[in-house]
């Protein structure tokens, strides 16, 4: 299936007009806002990366308060919240990747061959139980 890239046009006139209109409105707002010509910028001789680290972990004693960069807020609580959210995302991805057959969760990465011979057993990390009644119901079968 090697085909060249094809543009997909058509039936997108109204969303296109809407997106361009939104861009026009926002651009008009931005161009009418009087931004200063020169950015404030960061002072020389202060490492931006280490300042980010101090702000992430509330190391306020280490922050350069005398420079113009020292007004960064502390972020330790939000850092921990983001860590918890990433853990929750990992768990949710695992839950979504599992499939349930007859109320029992089947591991997402079990390998079952699609053959119909009786010798096909799913891969089991505990050596495989010998009861083997309906083991071929899990895994990837479509």
């Amino acid at each position: 299936m090697t085909n060249g890239p094809q543009l997909r046009l058509g039936e997108s006139l109204l969303p296109g007009i809407l997106a361009v209109a939104l861009f026009g409105v926002m651009a008009m707002i931005a161009l009418n806002t009087g931004f200063a010509d020169e950015m404030v910028g960061f002072p020389e001789g202060i490492s931006v990366t280490s300042e980010i680290g101090y702000a992430l972990f509330d190391f306020t004693a280490l922050q350069s308060t005398e420079g113009s960069i020292g007004n960064t807020e502390p972020f330790l609580v939000s850092f921990l919240l983001v860590a918890v959210v990433l853990d929750a995302a990992l768990d949710a991805a695992l839950v979504l990747a599992k499939r349930e057959t007859e109320g029992k969760p089947i591991a997402a990465l079990s390998s079952v061959s699609t053959g119909d011979s009786a010798s096909t057993q799913p891969a089991a990390t505990d050596g495989g139980a010998e009861d083997g009644s309906s083991r071929s119901s899990g895994g990837e079968q479509r």
């Binding site: 931006v48 300042e51 113009s68 007004n71």
Partner: peptide, 11 residues
């Protein structure tokens, strides 16, 4: 963040 000279935006 660069415009205001503050690192909060980068964090």
């Amino acid at each position: 963040a660069l415009y205001h000279g503050n690192l909060t935006g980068q964090v």
